Simulated assay, not measured.
Amino acid sequence: MSAQVARIIGTRITSGEFRPGDTLPIENELCQAYGVSRSTVREAVKNLAAKGLVEVSPKTGTRVLPFADWNLLDQDVLSWRLNAQFDERIIEDLYEMRNCFEPRACFLAARDGSADDLERIRMRFSDLVSMLGQPALAAGAETEFHLAIMTATHNGLFVTIGRAVKTALKVSFGLTQRSANGQAMDLQPYQAVVSAILARKADEASRAMSQLLEISRARMLEALRNAPRAVEKTAGE
Rank of each mutant, 00 (worst) to 15 (best):
A223W: 06
V129I: 11
F173M: 08
I161D: 00
M97C: 00
D22P: 05
L24D: 08
R63D: 06
L78E: 03
A199E: 14
G21E: 09
S2E: 15
Q4L: 13
T60Q: 10
I13Y: 07
G156Q: 13
P103V: 06
C106T: 06
D87K: 13
P228F: 09
S15Q: 14
S210M: 05
L198A: 05
A227T: 14
A33E: 14
T62P: 00
R200W: 05
L48H: 03
A136Q: 14
G21R: 02
R63A: 00
G156V: 03
R122P: 02
T143A: 07
M1L: 12
A199Y: 11
R7E: 15
A50N: 15
A196S: 12
L128D: 01
L72F: 14
W70R: 06
E204T: 08
T14H: 05
A205L: 12
L72W: 11
Q177S: 13
M185Y: 04
A192S: 14
I90D: 01
Q183F: 01
A205V: 02
L94Y: 03
A235F: 07
N181M: 03
Q134G: 07
R178G: 09
N181T: 12
I90H: 07
A168K: 01
V171G: 01
S114D: 15
D74G: 12
D116H: 06
M1Y: 02
F67I: 02
A44K: 00
P228R: 06
A49I: 05
I90Q: 05
E142A: 13
V64F: 01
R98M: 12
L82H: 09
A136F: 07
D117W: 07
S179P: 01
D76A: 12
S130D: 15
T234R: 13
A180M: 09
T40Y: 02
F86G: 00
G35R: 04
Q211A: 15
M185E: 06
Q188W: 11
M209L: 14
G52S: 05
G236A: 09
T153E: 03
A139G: 14
D112T: 09
P103K: 03
I197H: 01
A3H: 04
K170M: 12
G10E: 10
R225H: 10
G52L: 10
D87Q: 03
I161M: 05
A141N: 05
S37K: 09
S126D: 15
C31Q: 07
I90K: 00
L212E: 01
R207S: 08
V45N: 04
V64C: 10
G182A: 12
A192I: 04
N99Q: 09
T143W: 01
H154V: 04
T143D: 07
S15P: 02
G113W: 11
A49P: 03
E119T: 12
G156S: 09
R12I: 04
D116V: 10
A105D: 08
I8Y: 09
A6D: 11
P66Y: 08
G140S: 11
T14D: 12
T176E: 07
S37P: 04
G156L: 10
R104H: 10
L78H: 01
L213T: 11
A168H: 05
V231D: 10
M123H: 13
E27L: 15
I215V: 15
A68R: 13
L157K: 07
D22V: 09
L169S: 00
L132V: 11
S114T: 15
L53G: 04
H146P: 10
E102S: 05
I13E: 02
M209E: 08
A6L: 08
L65V: 12
A202S: 15
A6Q: 04
